[in-house]
Design a protein around this nucleic acid. Structure first.
Lengths: 145, 145
DNA sequence: GAATTTATGCATTTAAGATGCATCTTTCAT
DNA sequence: ATGAAAGATGCATCTTAAATGCATAAATTC
């Protein structure tokens, strides 16, 4: 059971953004997190569509949090970014199971993944930030070397 | 976020076994569940090693539950069968993250997957069985045709 | 000892995700 | 206007874990 890297990286990107006031370029974010640039780009684009980050093109552009860190719940991020939250076959599109339609496993699994997300939702991004190491912002002047 | 088919199928196999007193062959179980025989074979072998099913070779052999259905907790089955329960990179062997060692995401994720398993552990196999359709046992006489 | 049934290892296939690359669009500074 | 900076998007390829199939071994019973 693992989340896609998209969900995982999303949270790290949000953490990084939450550590600085100014807009960051995707280039700088991916370099600082040590992640593939194009991968981060796609994740950020989606985060942008979801309103979780605010993106701006062109010179002086970049990305920043789309809303205050204390209004971003971790479980909600995962719920929106994770492409497939159907933990078992029968919860997915086209999935089948010999026991259906009367299988008690299905609601049990649905409930368990809700429990997972609810547990994550006990934390806001702000709460995580207060307990997480600051990566340090690279000043704009030397950022572009 | 999805479980491996190994975990998923394990539970279905256990459900099926819980519906009959007599031992079932892997052949019959896989046919009735509509799953690949060799895949079920490997799953059963592991379930056997874990003591969740009792296996017997040779004529008249087969598999049956290793202990009473009310002593099999769903979350425990998943915990034992799932090859990789590290939902994010930093929870896995060799995983890394720029925020480590001081990253609050890690304990939050660990806690969330515990919540997932605990939710499943509210159900025993017996509880599921009482709410699940009986697939119907193929009588031993015609089983071998 | 032959038939039945589980056990195991290896090799192949599959599918989802990740990655890289090329190109487009928007925005700003000069 | 023009060019550079930055995000957006589509496509094609690579990677990897999981699934599958096949062959063979081991155990058990009759």
């Amino acid at each position: 059971m693992r989340l896609s890297q998209a969900s995982d990286f999303s949270l790290r990107v949000l953490l990084l953004l939450g550590q600085s006031e100014t807009a960051q370029t995707v280039e700088s974010v991916s370099r600082r997190l040590g992640l593939a640039r194009s991968h981060v780009m796609k994740i950020v684009a989606k985060l942008g569509r979801l309103g979780l980050v605010e993106t701006n093109r062109g010179r002086g552009g970049g990305i920043r949090l789309g809303r205050p860190a204390d209004q971003i719940r971790v479980g909600d991020v995962v719920r929106k970014m994770e492409p497939d939250l159907g933990v078992v076959d029968c919860l997915r599109e086209g999935g089948s199971c010999a026991f259906l339609p009367a299988c008690a496993l299905r609601p049990a699994m649905r409930k368990a993944s809700e429990a997972f997300l609810e547990s994550l939702n006990e934390q806001t991004l702000a709460a995580l930030l207060s307990k997480t190491q600051v990566l340090g912002e690279i000043p704009p002047e030397i950022r572009r070397q």
